[in-house]
C-alpha cells in the first residue's frame, strides 16, 4: 500500500530523515516509535505530502505522491493534483485540528459534502448524539473521535495517525484507542505514531523504531518490543515501559 524508498528530508541544515525506506502492506497496522525529534511526524507528513521530500520517493497504491515521473526526472505536481491525492489519505493530528466554527457533523461532512455518510461515521465512533455539538463543547477524547470520523469520511485507502492520544487526559486515551482498534479489526491500513506501547503490542503488525531520522529496526511486536536488537531501541523502551 505504501512504498517509501530512500527518503531524505532536511529543514535548513537539520537532517530530519536520512535514507528512510519502508513498506506498508494493505490492511496492516504499522506503529512508529521513537524519541521526540527523531522525525516520526515528518515521515508521516511526507506520506501525504504535507512535507516535500528532498530525495527519494513515496508511493501510495503504486501512485507517486507529490510528483510525476518523466524518465529520470520528478516533476512537482500542481497543488490541485496534490490535494486530489490527499483526498484518499486520512490524517489524524495530535491536536485534533477540528474546525471550531462547524458542528461535529459539519466537520465530518465538509470534505465530501455527504451529511448522511457523516452521521454514519459519527455513529461508528460512538458520537451520533453529539452531531450538533461544536468542538468546544466536546471533551478531548470526543474531539479526537470526531477527527477520526472526519478522516474516515474520505473513504481513505489508508489513515495516518500522529500521536492521536498524546494531547489527551489519561482517562480519555482508552476511548480513542478503542475506536482505532475497531478500525484495525475492520482491515483499515493504518500508520500510527504513538507512545502507547500496550496498543502497539496488541494491534500492530509491524513496529518501526526511528531514531535520528533513520529506521533503526523494524519487525513484529514480539521481536522489536520483547527482544530488541539495538541498544537505542532498548534504551528507548526502558524509558517508555517503566
Amino acid at each position: 500500500m505504501i512504498e517509501i524508498r530512500g527518503v531524505h528530508k532536511s529543514f535548513g541544515s537539520l537532517e530530519v530523515l536520512r535514507d528512510v525506506s519502508l513498506s506498508v502492506p494493505a490492511g496492516s497496522v504499522t506503529v512508529i516509535l521513537g524519541p521526540s525529534g527523531s522525525g516520526k511526524s515528518t515521515l508521516l507528513r511526507c506520506v501525504n505530502h504535507l512535507e516535500k521530500v528532498d530525495r527519494g520517493t513515496v508511493r501510495v497504491d503504486g501512485e507517486l505522491i507529490g510528483y510525476r515521473q518523466d524518465g529520470d526526472k520528478l516533476h512537482e505536481l500542481p497543488e490541485r493534483l496534490v490535494l486530489k491525492q490527499r483526498a484518499n489519505i486520512g490524517f489524524v493530528f495530535q491536536t485534533f485540528n477540528l474546525f471550531p466554527h462547524m458542528t461535529a457533523l459539519e466537520n465530518v461532512s465538509e470534505a465530501r459534502r455527504n451529511p448522511g455518510r457523516a452521521l454514519e461515521l459519527l455513529d461508528r465512533v460512538g458520537l451520533a448524539d453529539k452531531a450538533k455539538a461544536y468542538p468546544r463543547q466536546l471533551s478531548g477524547g470526543q474531539q479526537q473521535r470526531v477527527a477520526i470520523a472526519r478522516a474516515l469520511a474520505l473513504d481513505p485507502k489508508l489513515v495516518l495517525f500522529d500521536e492521536p492520544t498524546s494531547a489527551l487526559d489519561p482517562e480519555l486515551v482508552g476511548e480513542v484507542l478503542d475506536v482505532m482498534r475497531d478500525l484495525a479489526r475492520a482491515g483499515t491500513t493504518m500508520v500510527v505514531v504513538t507512545h502507547e506501547i500496550g496498543f502497539a503490542r496488541e494491534v500492530a503488525d509491524t513496529i518501526v523504531f526511528l531514531d535520528g531520522g533513520r529506521i533503526v529496526e523494524q519487525g513484529p511486536p514480539v521481536e522489536v518490543l520483547d527482544n530488541p536488537q539495538h541498544e537505542r531501541t532498548r534504551a528507548f523502551l526502558s524509558k517508555v515501559l517503566i
Binding site: L50, R80, L83, R86, A87, N88, F93, A151, L154
Partner: peptide, 10 residues
C-alpha cells in the same frame, strides 16, 4: 493544514 490534509480545494 487540516483542510489541506482533507484535500479541500484551495
Amino acid at each position: 493544514e487540516a483542510a489541506a490534509a482533507l484535500g479541500i480545494p484551495r
